[in-house]
Structure formats: C-alpha cells, structure tokens
Amino acid sequence: MSTPDSRRTTRPRAQYEAPQRRGVTGPIVAIGAIIFLIAAGVVVYQYYQKVTSITVSATTANFVRVDDRTLNVEVDVNRDDVDVASYCIVTAMNYDKAEIGRREFVIEPGGNKVQRFKVDIPTRDLPVAAKVYGCATEMPSYLKP
C-alpha cells in the first residue's frame, strides 16, 4: 500500500517557484537619496552663507510725489561696518506695480550705523510707490570715485 507521501515524486523546486531576481532598484534609490541629501545640504549652506553675509540693508521710510515724473524717497540704511562704502538701489512704481524709475545712491564711509537718505527718482510714468531693491558693499565700477 502506498501512502500519500510515497506517491509524490521529487522534483526540483525551481520548477514551481519563480526565480529570485536580484534587482538594482534598491541601490539606485539609495544612491539617489544620498545625492539628493548632499545637494540639499549644499543649497542650505549657500543660503545660510548669503543670509549671514548681509552687512548693509535698507527700508523705505517715506515717499512723496514731487511731480508727475519725480518721486522723493526717504530710505533708512542700516550698516554693520560704517567704515566700508556701500550703495543701495531704490525703485519707483506705478499703479500696476511696474518699475518706472530707479536710482542708485552711494553711502560714504563714516557716519552712524543707521542713516536716513533722501533720494529723488526720475520716472517715466506717474509714480505712486517706492521700494528698496537692495544694497551691497561691493561697489560697481561706475559708482566708484
């Protein structure tokens, strides 16, 4: 008499199971994640360097329309090092918030850490607002004495 176990024929397992594949998806994802983290770290570091290196900044204190083509702007400039010359750019805008005039002005070495400057901006349209575009200590060649 045969038992159910004795009727079985032994066949290699390979016929019944799918072959195991060694995929490269896992290592590729890991390498991609590492590259992404390194790139993100570089971007964060550069942003931090840029933000902490700002040594001069400005804010618009007031502005008055002199006439239809001129805007007078008062700008408060804050400098970390008053011994370094710097410059700022202010812009005039129309009702559509489009830039219609721009003026650069130089802050000579010396003076207080916070100073107020009055700047007239010639415009090509009716000025209604002003804003500070930015400031820097690296003077462009056309502003150097």
Rank of each mutant, 00 (worst) to 15 (best):
V119K: 01
Q15T: 01
A39Q: 13
R8N: 09
V64I: 14
V66S: 08
P19F: 01
Q20S: 13
P109S: 03
A136T: 04
P4S: 06
S6C: 04
V132L: 05
D125I: 01
V75N: 10
G41A: 04
Q15N: 04
Y87C: 07
F63H: 12
N94Q: 09
Y133H: 11
T3Y: 09
V82S: 09
T70P: 01
D83P: 02
I107M: 15
N94G: 09
V42R: 10
R11W: 08
Y87T: 02
T137P: 02
C88W: 05
V56M: 08
R22W: 07
I31N: 06
I28E: 03
R13P: 08
V75P: 05
Q46Y: 00
N94C: 02
G23W: 07
P19L: 11
Y47R: 12
Y133F: 12
A58H: 10
V106L: 15
K50N: 13
C135L: 00
K144M: 06
Y16H: 13
Y133D: 13
V43S: 15
V119H: 01
V66T: 07
D83W: 02
M139I: 14
D67C: 10
V43W: 10
I100M: 07
V42Y: 06
T60N: 07
S2I: 02
I35R: 11
A85V: 05
V75M: 09
G101C: 07
G110S: 10
V73W: 09
N78P: 01
R103D: 00
T25R: 13
E74R: 12
I34Q: 09
V128P: 05
N62Y: 08
E17H: 03
T52M: 08
P4H: 01
K113D: 05
L143M: 14
V114C: 04
A92H: 09
R7V: 13
K144W: 00
P4L: 03
D96N: 12
T10W: 06
A39D: 10
G23F: 06
E17C: 03
K97L: 12
R116W: 00
I35H: 05
F117S: 05
Y47F: 00
V44L: 13
I89K: 14
V77F: 04
Y16P: 06
A136Y: 05
V119D: 03
D81T: 04
I54H: 03
F117W: 10
I35L: 14
Y45P: 04
G110L: 10
Q115H: 00
I107V: 14
V44F: 09
A58E: 08
E74I: 09
